[in-house]
């Protein structure tokens, strides 16, 4: 009955309505296209040109920028270095956020007094700017006056002290831990939402069958939260492969020490916007770097979407 009326109505109004459709869509499509889609395409286009300035490309060079990027010193070396750093960075952050986020969410989801408070506290660092967090932690980690080493000494753990941001072995993991510290709240939030979505009866049934907390995690929580791992990981992936602020704040745009913390974001900024004397490669090369970054992010996300079959999840959750 209702359906019939619906069809009837929409057929009556079809002609009249049509007029508004482009009007409603127009502003969105125009702004989104001109300031997001076109610039990204334009960057790809520019990667086939060379030129000093930033307003006009001068000379068409075909794939020369890409050839230099993949074969010539120092372009190749810096690029490959940033790629592997980024992969390491991404893996560390993913591991920490998923593992700690998962267990924190499981703990917070227990019914006890104050669990809501912990949930809100955990999200607080997410609201801060990455820049402020980076500056703050680099002050804390400073070997001369930084408070972190002093706390270690106080806890009689002085032997653990390292030149945190100065050593090529520790700098990248330390920065990855800082970024994980900041964004942990987001992972927890996602896992909490996932846990809230699990049928209470399933959990109760497991209890009655005598499942311990570990079995509960292993057989119920983990499988049902698998899609959430996918979401959290994709978000980290997109964020980390364009991460710039934390490197700027903690390791300068050169990825100190000696490019060991150079990520795609800082590489892109340095080669595109810095002068040649400071590591700039010109706009054309910068555009080539951006294009490769785009392909990596795009292919990566499609890959993840495929693996975690997000479509199914979305239908389930969105309903």
């Amino acid at each position: 009955m209702v359906g019939d009326r619906k069809k009837l109505m929409s057929s009556i109004n079809k002609k009249k309505i049509r007029y508004f459709i482009p009007l409603f869509l127009a502003s969105g499509i125009i702004i989104y296209t001109i300031f997001m889609v076109v610039p990204i395409l334009n960057s790809m286009f520019l990667s086939f040109y060379t030129g000093e300035g930033m307003s006009t490309p001068t000379e068409f060079v075909g794939f020369r920028n890409y050839i230099r990027l993949f074969t010539q010193f120092p372009f190749k070396d810096r690029f490959i270095n940033a790629f592997w750093n980024n992969v390491k960075f991404f893996l560390i952050v993913t591991l920490i956020q998923n593992v700690v986020g998962f267990f924190m969410a499981v703990l917070i989801s227990r019914k006890f007094w104050g669990n809501k408070i912990f949930r809100r506290i955990s999200f607080l660092p997410v609201t801060l700017s990455v820049l402020v967090v980076g500056f703050l932690f680099s002050l804390m980690l400073n070997p001369v006056w930084g408070i972190f080493d002093k706390i270690l000494e106080f806890l009689r753990l002085g032997f653990l002290i390292r030149p945190w941001l100065g050593s090529t072995t520790t700098a990248l993991p330390v920065i990855a831990i800082v970024i994980s510290w900041q964004w942990m709240g987001e992972a927890i939030l996602f896992y909490m939402a996932g846990i809230d979505g699990i049928d209470e009866e399933v959990l109760e049934a497991a209890k009655i069958d005598g499942a311990g907390p570990l079995a509960e995690i292993r057989y119920i929580l983990f499988p049902s939260l698998l899609p959430v791992i996918g979401i959290v990981t994709i978000l980290i992936f997109i964020g980390d492969f364009t991460q710039f602020d934390i490197i700027y704040a903690m390791a300068t745009t050169r990825g100190n020490p000696t490019y060991s913390t150079d990520l795609f974001g800082s590489l892109f900024y340095r080669v595109t916007f810095q002068s040649a004397e400071r590591g700039g490669w010109g706009m054309g090369m910068g555009a080539a770097v951006a294009t490769i970054m785009f392909l990596i992010v795009f292919i990566g996300v499609i890959f993840w979407l495929y693996i975690f079959r997000m479509k199914g999840l979305k239908d389930k959750e969105g309903a």
Binding site: N142, V144, W145, D149, R162, W164, G166, P257
Partner: peptide, 20 residues
């Protein structure tokens, strides 16, 4: 000094400026 790998320019200035 120990930990010199992580001592940047600002830290150097501060170290010497505070007679360390």
């Amino acid at each position: 000094p120990s930990g010199y790998e992580a001592i940047n320019y600002v830290a150097m200035q501060q170290m010497f400026g505070t007679r360390q």
